[in-house]
């Protein structure tokens, strides 16, 4: 495992920790999109189907379990926890996320590495992950006061994607036959979705002003 991959996984983990900190400690999910969180739970469920069938490493298994457990518990907190769910900004989280699922599934049936259940589910999870941030970005645009933890959460998620691209470039030059169009194209699309957010996040940090996205 190269340094970019490890750093990518760690920023991904950090984003989850930041979000859990906000939800668990501050008991608030203000500014967090439940739609995006539901999509992530679906992404991990579809991608880690082989969790108990194909053992890769202890690191791999533990990380997968962490992402599965954290994504489902975040959804549970936002829907069921009696204090947290009251802080959910339902009126502004209106992205029709169900309409992302079917096209991703159709695309996975058409474009996959192999036409098997596991491979189609894997491709589906890659496509869905690429667009899962959209409801969150829309909600951020509609949020007047984006708190620091929410901004950091999205920043770490975006950083994870950038680091994964660097990891692929590294692996492409160091590992033979390392060509994976599906994840590369989807991963680049996913990263580009953050470009706008990154710009405003870095500007707010540089100018030391509160983060706000133009509508």
């Amino acid at each position: 495992m190269n340094a970019f991959r490890l750093a990518g996984d760690m920023t991904h983990l950090l984003s989850v920790v930041v979000l859990l900190l906000k939800i668990h400690t501050i008991k608030s999910c203000a500014g967090i999109s439940l739609k995006t969180q539901e999509l992530y739970a679906l992404v991990f469920a579809a991608r880690y189907l082989d969790l108990f069938i194909h053992f890769i490493s202890l690191y791999n298994t533990v990380m997968k379990l962490v992402f599965l457990a954290s994504s489902f518990s975040i959804v549970w907190y936002m829907r069921r926890h009696k204090i947290v769910r009251r802080t959910y900004d339902k009126d502004h989280d209106t992205f029709r996320h169900h309409f992302l699922v079917l096209p991703c599934l159709a695309l996975a049936l058409l474009i996959n590495e192999r036409f098997t259940f596991r491979e189609v589910m894997w491709a589906f999870s890659i496509y869905l992950e690429a667009v899962a941030i959209l409801p969150q970005l829309v909600l951020l645009q509609r949020t007047r006061n984006i708190d620091n933890l929410t901004g950091q959460y999205v920043f770490f998620l975006g950083a994870y994607r950038v680091l994964y691209i660097l990891n692929w470039i590294y692996r492409y030059f160091t590992e033979p036959h390392f060509v994976h169009w599906i994840s590369w194209v989807a991963g680049i699309v996913q990263t580009l979705l953050y470009a706008d957010f990154f710009y405003y996040y870095i500007m707010s940090w540089k100018n030391n002003v509160k983060l706000e996205l133009p509508a």
Binding site: S57, N60, E113, Y164, F178, H180
Partner: peptide, 10 residues
């Protein structure tokens, strides 16, 4: 398969 080693990513 070409994808096997790739699926060690999360």
């Amino acid at each position: 398969s070409s994808g096997t080693n790739f699926k060690d990513e999360l």
